Simulated assay, not measured.
Amino acid sequence: MHPCWQILERHRDSLDATSVLWLDPPQSHSLIKTGDHCITPNRANHRQNPAQWLAPDADWPATVDHLVLFYPKAKGRLEWWLRQVQQQAAGATLWIVGENLGGIKSLPKRVSPWARCDKLDSARHCGLFEVRQENALPAGQDWLSFNWNDHTIHALPGVFSQNRLDTGTAVLLGQLPALSGELLELGCGSGVLSLALLNGDQQNHLTTVDIDWLATTSTQRTLTDAGMADRAEVIWSDGLSEVPVQRYDHLITNPPFHTGIRTHYEPSERFFAASHDWLKPGGSLWWVANDFLDYQAVLQKGAFEVQQLAHERGFRVYRAVRKG
């Protein structure tokens, strides 16, 4: 159980007495009542109960009296959430809970220009605060952008590769040829790799997925701006759970392995373990990974011929060809 739930359990009476809108909770919990709703960018949480766990672009409940926001680690995403609160439920009671390791102690300073922040509790290396808005939030910039290869990359706050080409993707792109046919990418982030894959061969088609709603929204805008959206399907998906089953010519990934402040390898490992079933005979799997990550050990034994193509700047690039 996430430690933030343990501190919130100490306030069960207050939370049980009112309808609560939970913002980005890490998982389900008994504190989330039948009549409550959650707003989540995480597809794994959303798919367990879409009627209660709403996507970020869904309409909020008509009446919101009490909100609980789980403090996001990703830079800029706190302000993004607070702007949603200001637009949708400015008069509601707002609690923000988070781990000390995730930076919750900096909350009073971060909101001081426009809000009063009172500590309600601290336990389990977590803090719980009530935030009362006193002034309008400063004008914020939800969308970030940077130029790459004569294209504009668009990203919402906290999305991977939101303001620059990350090192791992750069190393991977240095080895990728133009790939033709049907392509499948795991972890689209802001859409840099997606755009590069579509730019390499003008006749290919890309299916790209990400568990983060803000990432798929970012990639969709990046590809639309580049005029390539007609050759891509961007899917909000927990791994490949929402992807129609078919076989692809190539799979490509810079595997995601962080969830908040923790490493979480299981979704990427599921992708590698199942990759044999998603590739055509002779199809290839391309990936980049930090030196300490050994995804080739997860591949179906004897199903691939694996080759390391590069080792640069702490990253390794691999190609695995599916045997017939």
Results as ranks from 00 to 15, higher is better:
residue 67 L to G: 00
residue 224 T to W: 08
residue 310 A to M: 14
residue 78 L to I: 01
residue 46 H to V: 02
residue 243 V to R: 07
residue 221 R to M: 07
residue 60 W to A: 00
residue 8 L to P: 02
residue 27 Q to K: 11
residue 203 Q to Y: 07
residue 173 L to S: 03
residue 150 D to H: 09
residue 312 E to N: 06
residue 12 R to I: 11
residue 159 V to S: 03
residue 169 T to S: 12
residue 18 T to F: 10
residue 222 T to P: 01
residue 144 L to W: 13
residue 251 L to H: 05
residue 34 T to Y: 10
residue 301 K to A: 14
residue 6 Q to R: 15
residue 68 V to R: 01
residue 112 S to F: 11
residue 143 W to N: 03
residue 224 T to D: 09
residue 213 W to K: 01
residue 146 F to G: 01
residue 71 Y to F: 15
residue 162 Q to W: 11
residue 42 N to F: 09
residue 310 A to V: 05
residue 133 Q to G: 02
residue 309 L to S: 04
residue 4 C to V: 13
residue 292 F to L: 07
residue 68 V to Y: 04
residue 258 H to P: 04
residue 170 A to Y: 08
residue 100 N to W: 12
residue 173 L to F: 07
residue 72 P to V: 02
residue 244 P to V: 11
residue 254 N to E: 13
residue 270 R to V: 08
residue 215 A to T: 04
residue 102 G to C: 05
residue 307 Q to P: 03
residue 303 A to F: 13
residue 71 Y to V: 02
residue 125 H to R: 15
residue 169 T to G: 05
residue 121 D to K: 11
residue 61 P to Q: 08
residue 118 D to R: 15
residue 218 S to R: 08
residue 134 E to M: 11
residue 226 A to R: 03
residue 76 G to I: 02
residue 33 K to M: 09
residue 23 L to T: 00
residue 8 L to I: 13
residue 91 G to P: 02
residue 63 T to F: 13
residue 260 G to Y: 10
residue 198 L to W: 08
residue 174 G to I: 08
residue 78 L to F: 03
residue 255 P to S: 09
residue 110 R to K: 14
residue 112 S to G: 03
residue 214 L to V: 03
residue 277 D to N: 15
residue 247 R to Y: 10
residue 227 G to N: 11
residue 52 Q to G: 01
residue 112 S to V: 04
residue 96 I to D: 00
residue 178 A to C: 07
residue 29 H to W: 12
residue 142 D to A: 14
residue 190 S to L: 07
residue 304 F to N: 00
residue 249 D to L: 12
residue 176 L to E: 08
residue 138 P to N: 11
residue 22 W to V: 00
residue 265 Y to A: 13
residue 253 T to R: 11
residue 91 G to M: 06
residue 47 R to M: 08
residue 19 S to G: 09
residue 304 F to C: 03
residue 114 W to V: 04
residue 81 W to K: 00
residue 43 R to Y: 06
residue 282 G to P: 04
residue 214 L to S: 03
residue 180 S to W: 12
residue 18 T to I: 15
residue 223 L to F: 11
residue 158 G to N: 00
residue 161 S to W: 08
residue 191 G to M: 08
residue 248 Y to N: 04
residue 117 C to L: 10
residue 168 G to H: 05
residue 3 P to K: 13
residue 34 T to E: 13
residue 149 N to E: 08
residue 242 E to W: 09
residue 171 V to F: 10
residue 221 R to E: 09
residue 104 I to K: 00
residue 253 T to P: 04
residue 300 Q to V: 10
residue 211 I to G: 02
residue 7 I to P: 01
residue 141 Q to L: 14
residue 128 L to D: 02
residue 119 K to W: 13
residue 157 P to Q: 06
residue 52 Q to V: 01
residue 205 H to I: 05
residue 235 I to E: 06
residue 28 S to F: 10
residue 36 D to T: 03
residue 55 A to M: 13
residue 277 D to K: 09
residue 313 R to E: 05
residue 170 A to N: 06
residue 1 M to T: 14
residue 150 D to I: 04
residue 278 W to I: 06
residue 34 T to G: 06
residue 10 R to G: 07
residue 14 S to T: 10
residue 27 Q to N: 10
residue 40 T to L: 07
residue 300 Q to R: 15
residue 106 S to R: 15
residue 229 A to I: 15
residue 155 A to Y: 05
residue 81 W to E: 00
residue 87 Q to I: 02
residue 124 R to T: 06
